[in-house]
Design a protein around this nucleic acid. Structure first.
Lengths: 339, 339
DNA sequence: TCAAAAGTGTTATCCTTACACCCATGT
DNA sequence: ACATGGGTGTAAGGATAACACTTTTGA
């Protein structure tokens, strides 16, 4: 009696332009086609989705090649940096499963590109990542939305706890994930925060999923204070991707593929800031870059900066083959072997 | 014409006992049953495999629950800490695919347990992880096997490069992955190293896979200087797991689930050393633990140490809800918003 | 001349790394 | 008493975090 399985591949394709991190989105309706379901819930054609493609188990040699293949075909983009993110396989992650659809397992990948690359799918569109997570952008200080809207919602949820103990646990959790109380903000806990908002049912997807579960008619999708919703679990996937990027930024030169081959140090800083969602200290950032040996100066200058011209740098090819910076990690002492 | 797909779940279950990291292995033949293939290649019943279970798409609510379920059923182990590792989906990762088997996609999970937990599968067995990767244990200094056997094999491969350029690239690669030349040893590059040994065909699995590819009879499995082989791509999965553990050890308290609730600081250090494959400086390790606030002292003492009695500690429950240690990462400055 | 952005110097403080040494128990 | 493992002090050097300041362009 085991249901059929379908393997899907999701591509979280990210670029940074004009100091903003952007996600390549497509319209959901292109991929929506299960009659039983469609008649009940007409596909919301305005809704954002992460690009998606199937795995052809007989043709595709590897998952990553399959992904590169259909991304190229659908959008014209030749992906460069690609890494596997996570595999999502909860039952009913696609509500069509409830109406006779196959069980859908999705392997999500993260890709970093330059936005200026050409692509040619009419319904695809770059969107600012912070449209989906307005509370994640701390570059100009703590977002007002947290104090104004999110914290009260979280408080209400804490108060609804059935016992003292539950309420205390909830309090701890909201303090930690959103850096309330006297806790600090951890920029990489993107997924924890999204999942909390989903759990307390202020993320729109939670309401939609609940309706599907009860087989009642879901409310129309809407953009509320808790960010622009996406179809299915795509916002969860995006949250996982952003968290991964933020975690890796600290010790891996991910920004490589997001910048042109020549760039100024400010451009570099803006890209990192856009992704980290945090403002960086200019000089200390430069020291950081210098210590990591990330860049080397070309003699050239960029005079289009609007102020004093900036020196142009390029990445040092060999950072990728280099070793971890010391001072990060465990206190190792390797003994000499005397033979 | 799309072939059928089968979703598998692999559990890399790891414990540390007697200062050695151990992997729960099972015998392959329990799960081996495709006639066309079996007749050609009788299953090598002595071979190690990582525990494996199928996903029942109609019954299992989530991948992780499915995994916990069959691990419990097969071995009696109740897993505590579980994390998704990676999804392996290369075509022919299971050679039976060539003989009419389904395409096999495997989602690998990492689980950490205490070895003293009971389990009751007759054919399961704990094995020292370094049986599979003898070159990864640097606790008593650089393993002799590297200079004696591995480095020469790598050198030979470099020399076989068709051009100057290829030879230089290969040299760079071996220097980086194995810390030859003047480069240092990066303990977390476990997968890179295994994949290199596979690529140059000294890892036994490479020879087996090549034979399968040519549909000739593979040589009998054997333990050579390049570590004890495993079935299919299981050694690759294990390498990914060990690399993940080593990477995380530096900034996450993974050791939680590997130790009894009360332990001495030396025990803690030995567990970390066993997994990291590196010897640690005693006092600096203690400072590290203290700074991270990992433990709190109970008044109790352990007198069974063979020397001066040691103070017993327990983990601080709230480390999990705490924030990143400062000094790790980007130079952030969050401005105050004046309203 | 002034706004805008690039780029530099200099501290106090904390963390890392590396030493060498003392303590409490069982045999 | 001595082997065994537990536990501590301290100082040099380096990295971080926080200051404020100078330089070069375009409008």
């Amino acid at each position: 009696m085991s249901t059929q399985v379908e393997i899907g591949l999701n591509a979280v394709i990210i670029a940074v332009t004009d100091k903003e991190p952007r996600l390549l989105t497509v319209n959901w309706d292109r991929q929506f086609s299960l009659e039983a379901y469609d008649q009940l819930r007409p596909p919301p054609s305005t809704l954002n989705a992460i690009p998606f493609g199937p795995l052809d188990p007989s043709a595709d040699r590897t998952l990553e090649l399959a992904l590169r293949g259909w991304v190229k075909k659908q959008t014209g983009l030749e992906l460069d940096y690609v890494e596997q993110l996570y595999t999502f396989g909860d039952r009913n992650r696609d509500p069509r499963e409830r109406y006779g659809g196959k069980r859908s397992i999705s392997v999500a990948y993260l890709a970093l590109v330059q936005e200026n690359e050409t692509f040619d799918i009419a319904q695809a569109r770059w969107r600012n990542i912070y449209d989906f997570f307005p509370w994640e952008d701390w570059r100009t200080g703590a977002p007002e939305i947290i104090q104004a809207v999110i914290a009260p919602a979280l408080e209400a949820w804490v108060e609804q706890g059935v016992s003292q103990k539950v309420r205390r646990q909830r309090r701890e959790r909201i303090d930690m994930t959103f850096g309330l109380g006297d806790a600090g903000w951890d920029n990489y806990r993107v997924l924890d925060r999204y999942e909390l908002l989903y759990e307390i049912e202020v993320a729109f997807e939670a309401q939609w999923d609940r309706a599907c579960q009860q087989k009642t008619l879901p409310p129309p999708h809407q953009h509320n204070h808790f960010g622009c919703p996406m179809i299915l679990d795509h916002r969860r996937i995006l949250a996982a991707a952003l968290g991964r990027i933020r975690g890796k930024l600290k010790y891996r030169p991910l920004v490589f593929d997001l910048l042109p081959s020549l760039f100024t140090l400010s451009q570099l800083q803006h890209v990192v800031e856009a992704l980290a969602g945090l403002p960086l200290h200019k000089q200390n950032f430069r020291r950081f870059v210098e210590k990591a040996g990330l860049v080397e100066s070309t003699g050239q200058m960029d005079t289009q900066t609007g102020g004093r011209p900036a020196a142009l740098f390029r990445f040092r090819r060999d950072v990728l083959t280099e070793h971890q910076s010391p001072g990060v990690g465990l206190p190792v002492t390797i003994p000499q072997k005397n033979t």
